[in-house]
Amino acid sequence: MSNLAVILSLSLVLSVPVATASDISDEADITALDSETVIEMIEQAEVARSRAADLRAEWLETRDLIEQARHDAELGELEQAARLAMRARRQSELAVEQALREAEAWKRRVVR
């Protein structure tokens, strides 16, 4: 019971705040973005997502975030679109890091 609690807590601590911190630190930069820049940010997120997908390591909500970002950008909600694009990109970067780390790390968990 305690093992799982520790795993879940660590996972949440490691994943959620990273994305949030990234959003907050860039907040000042995303309030006055033009449409072209936001579309570029969404494309960058898509490239990062596709890298994670190539490693078969994509996270659950990344595609939805990108889709929502596109939708918001079309409606002119640029700040929200930029925020979602950054979150999607960060998720994808973390997914790639995870996959690369696990290329060796899984071996340490094998029952022997």
Binding site: M1, S2, N3, L4, I7, L8, L10, S11, L12, L14, S15, A57, W59, L60, E61, Q91, Q98, E102, A105, W106, K107, R109, V110, V111
Partner: peptide, 23 residues
């Protein structure tokens, strides 16, 4: 044995290491 996803968990984390524990 590979961790995946935003919760960073492997199948083995739940069904080996934490088997019998509450979720």
């Amino acid at each position: 044995y590979s961790k995946r996803g935003q919760l960073n968990l492997a199948c083995s984390d739940c069904h080996v290491k934490s088997a019998g524990a509450f979720v």
